[in-house]
């Protein structure tokens, strides 16, 4: 049985509208208008134990609505969802004791307290028996290199340090399912790498199921074998990164270094057709975006090398950001 089963999950919000201007404000005193927002339009997916799933989509697509429902703090309008046999919103407190949640932009630590005291408070909140608490705490301190930070008040930690402490805090009670919401937001490169290493270790070695929402596609590429892409309240893609690439077309970029500074005009005269996405020339280097489904990379290379003096060339996949941006563009940015 999958650890998470989601069936036909839908959520409709009502939001109040405000009128413009002074007269509008007066009218707003008397009656208000509301409109319906379909944050989730019926989604289905399963997640097995031990999976590490990336959950991505544009802002307002329904990501956080889904996470809130899975975490038990939001009741859906219709549909079902079970996590380890519990319905999160019906059994909120029991469910809460079994999951860990980290919001990248908010801390659950107590601002004025040393890290260790926040941990001890959470131990009591989660009723973690002393031996288990000690074991989990020591393991987290070791994995996340928290030793030197334990006696520092949270307000004095850097963002990267705070995120590490927050991760530890979310795992002290030994949850088997972890929700990570933008865990690398605002972190510097080294901290991001450390965070990814930790998440990978947690998933591979401890078998903790991880659901990761992020805007950082490097996180996804580094960690996730499976991604769920949501747009306008629907699951657009449930599969691997390759599925995402195929979905928006097999775009590649041919990068050519000429012997002489290349001329955009000459290149554009030479290359045209529906398969051509874009041509950009900077100095001696040209970047030619093309659809590998419509023209074979080898044929394109032959054509370029036969007309120009080429020093070097190579073909690359576009960064996944572009792929995702294309997909989002196709489905429109969702509403708030």
């Amino acid at each position: 049985m999958p650890q998470i089963e989601v069936k036909n999950l839908a959520k409709v919000f009502r939001v109040a509208e405000r009128r413009a201007g002074l007269a509008g404000a007066f009218r707003g005193l008397l009656d208000r208008r509301t409109r319906e927002v379909h944050a989730l339009a019926g989604i289905d997916f399963d997640i097995e134990r031990g999976e590490l799933v990336g959950y991505i989509g544009p802002n307002g697509a329904g990501k956080s609505t889904t996470i809130k429902i899975l975490a038990g703090i939001l009741t859906p309008t219709r549909g079902t969802c079970t996590v380890d046999g519990l319905t999160p919103w019906d059994d909120r407190r029991r469910h809460a004791a079994r999951i860990g949640v980290v919001f990248g932009q908010r801390t659950q630590l107590w601002w004025d307290l040393p890290v260790i005291e926040s941990f001890e408070l959470l131990q009591r909140v989660y009723r973690v028996p002393e031996p288990l608490f000690r074991r989990n705490r020591d393991r987290m301190v070791e994995l996340l290199r928290l030793g030197p930070l334990l006696d520092t008040p949270v307000r004095q930690l850097s963002l990267g340090q705070r995120m590490r402490a927050d991760l530890a805090a979310a795992l002290l009670h030994g949850p088997r399912l972890l929700f990570l919401d933008e865990p690398t937001i605002g972190l510097d490169a080294a901290a991001k790498l450390a965070m990814r290493d930790f998440v990978r270790t947690l998933n591979r070695e401890e078998g903790v199921t991880v659901v990761l929402t992020t805007h950082d596609m490097d996180d996804i590429e580094a960690l996730c074998e499976r991604i769920l892409v949501i747009g306008q309240g629907r699951i657009l893609i449930d599969g691997g990164i390759d599925d995402l690439r195929r979905r928006v077309g097999d775009e590649r970029v041919l990068i050519v270094d000429f012997e002489e500074p290349g001329s955009l005009a000459a290149l554009e005269r030479e290359l045209h057709g529906a398969w051509l996405r874009e041509v950009r020339v900077t100095g001696k280097r040209a970047r030619i975006g093309f659809d590998a489904g419509a023209v074979a990379p080898a044929a394109l290379i032959t054509r370029v090398t036969s007309r120009f003096e080429v020093h070097d060339l190579f073909v690359e996949h576009p960064p996944i950001e572009h792929t995702v941006a294309d997909l989002y563009a196709e489905h429109g940015e969702g509403e708030a």
């Binding site: 201007g21 002074l22 404000a25 707003g28 005193l29």
Partner: peptide, 15 residues
């Protein structure tokens, strides 16, 4: 002054 009034009028329950 006018901006301030507009702002405040939105709070009907407060009034």
């Amino acid at each position: 002054v006018s901006a301030r009034y507009r702002n405040l009028l939105q709070y009907r329950a407060a009034a």
